[in-house]
Design a protein around this nucleic acid. Structure first.
Length: 472
RNA sequence: GGCCACGUGGCGGAGUGGUGACGCAGCGGACUGCAAAUCCGCGUACCCCGGUUCAAUUCCGGGCGUGGCCUCCA
């Protein structure tokens, strides 16, 4: 089965052919670490995790290099660090902020079933590469120095704008931004800028005397180049990054390296709304991953990471997604239904039809549909159950969670399981006496504390056995 | 204003130039002392208006709606 991926560069699905099947290389723009990651940040992390898993399945675990960076140099970081740690020296406060935020990010996304990338470079560890890149661009005429800045000259690149499908004329006509006076062209962008006192600073490139710091886009070009080479297979990120961030990455990397392309395939996940509205702090619907996982802020419920992941993958990655309580409720109900797999054995490999669905431009909804079909037969067939379980684990959608696990908020006001077991024994006793009034009373009592009973007949002994779960 | 997506049944959500994916909810039935779980069955869905076609939800044009980018926001 062959992998096909939608390429933003060509606006169509294309067969995926790695440059080197022994080392398939993918870069995804990671977070700028100044605050909790929000649910919109979670989408590319989850989506490209699925792609990473798929590539490992298709090409072998040791034949995929996945780079997802951490951007730890940024104006927002500087501002936040100064605000939060006013008594610390700037570089100390910044380091603390970025370390803490990165650690929180790792914790959050681990709960979402996300595998660690092969390499997770930090921008500040690649300043040397950025400086080299600036020097190269100035030397070959694609960049110039002005007012202690290094600026990229977009007019030097004939097909600038190809990724986002816009021409320089269009962009300049539609521009509403004031143009810095030192720019040659209005669309020229900053590769390097001088640092004010208190800001992080490194020795500048291109003979600039004052110390400076990198512009926004250069870090990804530097890290991708260092870890994946001048040309690699896949570059991913949110659709909002296509312009200007990815466009400018392409410009820098290609012109610095003298290549026709930077990445062969450019992939972009769609945007996320919350309850039908743009997520924004001013609307009060801004929701972080951590709030979802550990508080009852959203829908008065705490949500398990697998539930969040399932809800996310229920929609194709390029479609817009409306993040609602109802979708989480449905995802949780589905996972509840699958928890009968708890403790079951696991097959060696995921179901090939699911691999085929994912190979069609990561069609996760179709994959989930196939999973539903598998679940049907898994109720009666242990082999199907083990394949289902392997498939779910492959997609990061299930890892032996119980229903209690999957409903973390509920658990805290539950239930003394000793008491439940005592009541169940009493009920079984009443049933043996055919005292169904008493047996129903006990079941109602348990229902009142959110416990649902299931009676099953043991095939071997013929005895009635009762299990219980939390009401959904 | 320029550029770009998206609009499928009560809800979620794939897909396709020609017999209604799939899930949730709902309804009916089997099973059960009653339930739960499970199983079986049940739905005249593709924003509007034109066009192309033997045939359009699917292609083309226009409109309306929602959203994104053009402002270091995934």
């Amino acid at each position: 089965m062959s992998l096909r991926l939608y390429n933003t560069l060509t606006r169509q699905k294309e067969p995926f052919e790695p440059l080197d099947p022994a080392n398939v290389r993918m870069y995804v723009c990671g977070p700028t670490v100044y605050d909790f990651a929000h649910i919109g940040n979670a989408r590319p992390v989850i989506v490209f995790d699925v792609l990473f898993r798929l590539l490992r399945e298709l090409y072998g675990k040791d034949h995929v290099t996945y780079v997802r960076n951490i951007t730890d140099v940024d104006d927002k970081i500087n501002a936040r660090a100064a605000e939060r740690f006013p008594d610390l020296a700037p570089e100390v406060g910044i380091r603390k902020l970025t370390d803490d935020t990165a650690a929180q990010f790792h914790k959050d996304i681990a709960s979402l079933g996300v595998l660690p990338p092969t390499v997770e470079p930090r921008a500040t560890e690649h300043i040397v590469e950025m400086v080299q890149m600036c020097n190269a661009l100035v030397a070959n005429g694609h960049a110039y120095v002005a007012a202690d800045h290094v600026l990229f000259d977009v007019s030097s690149m004939p097909d600038y704008g190809r990724l986002s499908n816009r021409s320089l004329d269009e962009m300049e006509a539609g521009a509403r931004v004031e143009v810095a006076p030192y720019k040659k062209g209005p669309m020229d962008f900053v590769l390097w800028k001088p640092s004010k006192p208190g800001e992080p600073a490194w020795p500048s490139p291109a003979g600039i005397a004052v110390p400076g710091r990198p512009g926004w886009h250069i870090e990804c070009s530097a890290m991708a180049g260092r870890h994946l080479g001048n040309v690699f297979d896949i570059h991913g990120g949110g659709i909002d990054l296509a312009f200007p961030h990815h466009e400018n990455e392409i410009a820098q990397s290609r012109c610095a390296h003298g290549t026709d392309i930077m990445a062969r395939v450019w992939m972009h996940n769609g945007f996320l709304q919350v309850e039908g509205e743009k997520m924004s702090k001013s609307l009060g619907n801004f929701i972080t991953i951590n709030e979802l996982l550990e508080t009852k802020t959203f829908g008065a419920n705490q949500w398990h990471g697998r539930v969040v992941r399932w809800a996310m993958l229920g929609t194709h990655y390029r479609q817009p997604i409306d993040w609602t309580v109802d979708r989480l409720v449905q995802a949780r109900a589905t996972l509840f239904d699958l928890s009968f797999l708890h403790g079951a054995p696991v097959a060696d490999a995921p179901h090939p039809e699911v691999i085929a669905a994912l190979s069609d431009d990561l069609n996760t909804p179709s994959a989930i549909s196939i999973i539903h079909g598998l679940a049907k037969s898994a109720h009666r067939n242990a082999m199907s159950a083990s394949i289902l379980k392997a498939t779910l684990q492959f997609m990061g959608l299930y890892d032996n969670e119980t229903q209690s696990d999957l409903n973390p908020g509920y658990q805290v006001r539950t239930v003394d399981s000793v008491k439940v077991d005592t009541l169940i024994a009493a009920r079984l006793d009443a049933r043996k006496r055919k005292d169904f009034n008493e047996s129903d009373r006990i079941r109602d009592e348990l229902a009142a504390i959110g416990v649902t009973l299931k009676d099953t007949k043991n095939k071997d002994t013929g005895e009635i056995e009762t299990t219980w779960e939390l009401a959904r």
